[in-house]
Simulated scan of single mutants.
Amino acid sequence: MGRENTNYRLAVPLRKRVAIALWKLATGSGYRSISHLFGVGISTVFNCVEDFCDAVINVLLPRHIATPDAAKLIEMATFFRNRWRIPQCVGAIDGSHIPIIAPEEYPRDYNRKGWHAIVLQGVVDGKGLFWDVCVGYAGSVHDARVLRQSHLWELLNDGELLGKTKMAISGINVGHYLIGDPAYPMQNWLMKPFSDTGRLSAEQHTYNYRLSSARSVVEMAFGRLKGRWRCLLKRNDCKLELSKTMTLTCCVLHNICEEHGDNFIEEHDRQFNIQPPGQALPEHGELEGADIRAAIMSYFNRREE
């Protein structure tokens, strides 16, 4: 991000360029107000933000948001089991909408209940750190469709990554899996709650409660993400591509803050995480992963007895 002085002007110091970008991400202030605050031109503010985001994605993203290996998956599963008594779970998945200004192309696709947005799909571990993110689908796209079109679907659908280490649960060999809300499709590697038809058994209620308790980790992660980086709370005065880049940058910075024990005030989470649960997908016929869900439900109820 550094710049050299020229015969015509002095370059903005590197630390100041970083500060300008962080201020924009942390406050969501307009370019004009930031230019007045730091005593630089509006175009300089824009360049600082763009350069900083590019640097974070190129240099820091591979270090702080990475697909876990087999040893890391076992570590994450152990954390989930110890904290929420859920076996073999390695992450929680959810989507969140990030406000944007109406894009020039296909603005209706990005319209969500009267405002324009892009979808941020995130998978977090038990500590609330992102280990997979997908940013940029139009706000009108359903969470299940975002998942099916994301690289995560290709990564996990063949069963290779999450199927390496299995555990016998109620007579079924269960690999690692994610948990999601009712908006997601059931898979061998993705568990979701039973649809509440008013006729759920006590065992099914217990299963739903345990999954909901563990899934709260991703909701709280989104809350802390938006609480720290408030540019994600309101429409940014920038084009679509930069909005995507800024969102991805904030996810990286979130992980860095969490890894270094940054003290975020938890009671502020609720006001930032306003994402309602996704609309449940109808359950027709035999679901993929139904035997695994039944085994986990049996495991929960044995533990409750």
Rank of each mutant, 00 (worst) to 15 (best):
R85N: 15
R210S: 10
L120R: 06
T27F: 04
P276H: 05
T245S: 15
Y209Q: 11
N255E: 10
G139Q: 07
S213H: 03
S298M: 07
A11S: 15
N188I: 03
E105F: 10
F130S: 10
Q279A: 09
F52Y: 15
E305G: 14
S96M: 12
K244D: 08
H36F: 14
I93Q: 03
A92H: 05
H176S: 07
M246R: 03
E203D: 15
L162Y: 03
V18W: 01
A290D: 05
W23Q: 08
C48A: 14
T165A: 05
Y8V: 11
D143H: 01
C48G: 05
S216L: 07
S298E: 14
I169M: 08
G114A: 05
H254Y: 11
A21Y: 04
V12M: 04
N255A: 13
Q121S: 06
L73D: 05
A77N: 10
W84F: 14
M167S: 13
T44A: 10
M220W: 07
K226V: 08
K192N: 00
K72N: 03
D158E: 13
W153T: 01
R112G: 00
L232P: 11
Y184A: 01
L248R: 11
L178K: 04
G30D: 12
W189M: 04
V133F: 03
E105N: 11
L242S: 04
T6C: 06
E283K: 02
T245Q: 15
F194H: 08
L61V: 01
S201D: 02
L37C: 12
A102H: 02
Q121V: 04
R108N: 11
N188K: 09
P68F: 09
F38L: 12
G30H: 12
I93L: 15
A202T: 09
H254W: 12
L14R: 11
V18E: 08
W115H: 13
S216F: 01
V217W: 02
G163P: 09
R81D: 14
Q121P: 09
R83K: 15
S216P: 00
I42E: 15
G175V: 04
